[in-house]
Design a protein around this nucleic acid. Structure first.
Lengths: 188, 188
DNA sequence: ACTCGTTTGTACCAATCGGTACAAACATCG
DNA sequence: CGATGTTTGTACCGATTGGTACAAACGAGT
């Protein structure tokens, strides 16, 4: 890797955008070559496993980012309401306020789900479980916390879909505001 | 068409399942041939425009079904609460209680969105607008009705994503129950 | 039985797919 | 400078892609 230690992360980020825009099947090596400026020789040098390994690396990269910025604040912040606020802010930033799509969600719909079933399940599973944990710590009952967490994550995913469908990021912002309210309101 | 008038609808339904399972890019003619039992000769006889026309026919087919079973009850049922109930029941039936995926939603994420932007926007637009109309007729204020409708449709889409991700249709059923409650509760 | 339009299978096309091979160009370090 | 391991571009591979051509098989009407 020529460009120093951060080169691989930037490379993975560039590849991620291709998968995001075209899905697994639609992300051809030609598109990846174009997006990264790297020929097939380099690509297969960094990812000997080919397209599959590239997608796996992208998934792992996303997973780490969410673990650090979204999930772990939910678990480890002393004040659960602050953890929830941090997760909402990070989520909003990550999805560029609705202009960006969730690759894991897109893979879940597509037949890439079979390939990455474990990673997809783990990603959403931790999101829901960690949010439910924070909600419990605000005083909510377990069943209610679980349901609210599930609905919130689903709401975020659905809002991303609708924002893309309408080509209108405001849909996402409005839904995020509403979710923030539902999650914040009662700490009964 | 040999098999009578309903043959085309069945053909479109079979093709729809291929797009649903593999996305636009992943739905190869080989898969469509296999799923329909029809050779390329027949396929291009019925859809001279090729894959694009097949996808367009599938989209139109879905659009008509939702118009008849989901949107129009929202607009035309005298009692708006009954219209909402009918739309929820039809939605649950269509998505096989969470075991089936929303093709329009999947296309919205994928790069098929560019091809079918108008159809996708119209589909979700009518869903939200007609639901908001019914909510207004229950006595809600316009702004609140609009927001609730948008969140409900987003919630349905997100629940489909999560149900696929967890491979657990119950996620969808739970979310649908919760949406039913939110939509039914107050007719203030 | 004969015709006529539809439906079907097969063979074929150029383009692109993901992937491999490998030698030239490179950076790094003694 | 020379040696060594990494990075890169190019050429190539068989398989598959979406799409076309077309003659044989078919069904319905007379």
């Amino acid at each position: 890797m020529r460009k120093g230690a951060s080169g691989r992360n930037e490379l993975i980020a560039a590849i991620a955008e291709v998968f995001r825009a075209h899905g697994y099947a639609g992300a051809s090596l030609a598109l990846i070559t174009e997006a990264t400026g790297l020929g097939k020789g380099s690509l297969y040098n960094f990812f000997p496993g080919g397209k599959d390994e590239m997608a796996a690396a992208v998934m792992a990269h996303i997973d780490h980012w969410f673990e650090d910025e979204v999930f772990s604040p939910l678990r480890e912040t002393k004040n659960p309401q602050e953890g929830i606020s941090r997760m909402l802010a990070a989520t909003d930033a990550y999805f560029h306020s609705g202009r960006r799509v969730c690759l894991v969600g897109a893979f879940a719909l597509d037949d890439a789900r079979d390939r990455f079933a474990a990673e997809i399940r783990s990603y959403f599973g931790r999101w829901v479980a960690d949010l439910a944990g924070a909600l419990r710590r605000t005083g909510r009952q377990e069943a209610q916390a679980e349901r609210l967490a599930e609905e919130s994550v689903a709401g975020i995913q659905g809002a991303l879909t609708l924002a893309r469908a309408f080509d209108d990021p405001d849909v996402f912002s409005r839904t995020m505001a509403s979710i923030r309210e539902r999650l914040g309101a009662a700490d009964i």
